[in-house]
Computed example of a mutant assay.
Amino acid sequence: MKLITYCIVFLLYLPVHAQLVVTSSLKTYKNGVKKHPEKELIDIKKAIPGITLDIRYATTNNFMKEVMYPEARAFARKPVVEQLKKIQAELRKQGYGLKIYDAYRPYAITQAFYKKASDKNFVANPAKGSIHNRGCAVDLTIIDYKSKKEIEMPTPYDSFSPAAAANYKNLPPKAIRNRDFLINTMQAHGFKVLANEWWHYDFNGWQNYELLNIPFKSL
């Protein structure tokens, strides 16, 4: 009897791991938006017509070397898009603009990335989910608005090089200036750069948004 009691007490004190909650139901997502309008996923191009999209995962021009998205579209939560709109307007005054590589990413794509990627350090672990899955992360750079050409940055997008780090120093001065200009501009509007990816920015308060697995076609 004492042994049974001991075992019950032991089981009660075992660590409990919270199950990851991912919203896959379009109805559940829409009901959430009705209660909290700021949680709506907004089509970035429709909200900011002058912005440039280069959705690499809708092509084979990406580190996976295969098409991961069925459509070349970019979505983000409403407050994220509102800030991107302000950034775009600010850059336009200086002759620049934003180019978006990636934004909201359905959870199923994060699972596919992790399964197929050879280097797991550069992809989000599905066990935790990605901030892209929450619609609160954007991958982007700055372009010359007229020519649409990217300004010089430390590395190409999705580079696995150490030079991709946001504080890497052994670079041409112009690349450092441009990178820091982007980082400071984004930071002033509520974004934080990812330490090992100069192009990746997380929106402050991303913890308040749930993980989503809503496909682009449903949006």
Score class of each variant (00 low, 15 high):
Asp180Lys: 06
Ala58Met: 07
Val16Asp: 00
Trp198Lys: 03
Leu219Gly: 03
Lys46Ile: 06
Gln88Trp: 00
Met186Cys: 10
Leu3Ser: 06
Glu40Thr: 04
Leu91Met: 10
Tyr168Thr: 13
Ile8Asp: 10
Lys65Arg: 10
Tyr96Val: 02
Ala188Leu: 07
Asp102Gly: 14
Phe75Met: 08
Lys86Tyr: 02
Leu91Tyr: 08
Phe181Ala: 07
Val80Phe: 08
Thr28Ser: 11
Ile51Leu: 15
Ala72Ile: 03
Tyr57Gly: 02
Met1Glu: 14
Lys146Ser: 04
Trp198Arg: 00
Lys174Leu: 15
Ala103Gly: 13
Trp199Cys: 11
Leu12His: 07
Asp158Leu: 04
Asn204Asp: 15
Tyr104Met: 07
Asp180Leu: 01
Tyr69Arg: 03
Ile109Trp: 03
Val22Glu: 10
Phe216Ile: 00
Asn213Ile: 02
Ala137Cys: 09
Val16Pro: 01
Leu53Met: 08
Asn204Val: 15
Ala112Asn: 06
Asp102Phe: 01
Ile42Gly: 10
Arg73Gln: 11
Trp199Asn: 14
Thr59Trp: 05
Ser218Pro: 05
Leu11Asn: 05
Asn62Val: 03
Ala127Met: 05
Met153Arg: 03
Asp144Trp: 05
Tyr145His: 07
Thr185Lys: 13
Ala58Gly: 10
Glu210Met: 01
Glu38Lys: 12
Pro70Ile: 05
Gly97Met: 04
Cys136Met: 15
Thr185Gly: 04
Phe10Ala: 11
Phe10Gln: 09
Ala74His: 09
Ile100Cys: 01
Met64Val: 03
Tyr157Ile: 12
Lys85His: 12
Ala164Trp: 06
Leu98Pro: 14
Leu212Asn: 07
Gly190Pro: 10
Gly205Arg: 12
Pro156Trp: 04
Ile8His: 12
Phe75Ser: 06
Asn167Glu: 13
Tyr145Asp: 07
Glu71Trp: 09
Gly95Lys: 08
Lys217Pro: 02
Ile100Val: 13
Phe203Pro: 04
Ser159Thr: 00
Glu197His: 14
Val81Pro: 00
Lys78Gln: 14
Leu20Asn: 01
Thr110Trp: 02
Lys149Gly: 06
Tyr13Phe: 15
Met1Ile: 12
Ala163Lys: 15
Val16His: 11
Thr185Ser: 08
Gly32Gln: 13
Ile44Ser: 08
Leu12Asp: 03
Val22Ile: 15
Asp102Val: 02
Lys174Met: 11
Asp158Cys: 06
Ala103Leu: 12
Asp102Met: 13
Ile143Ala: 06
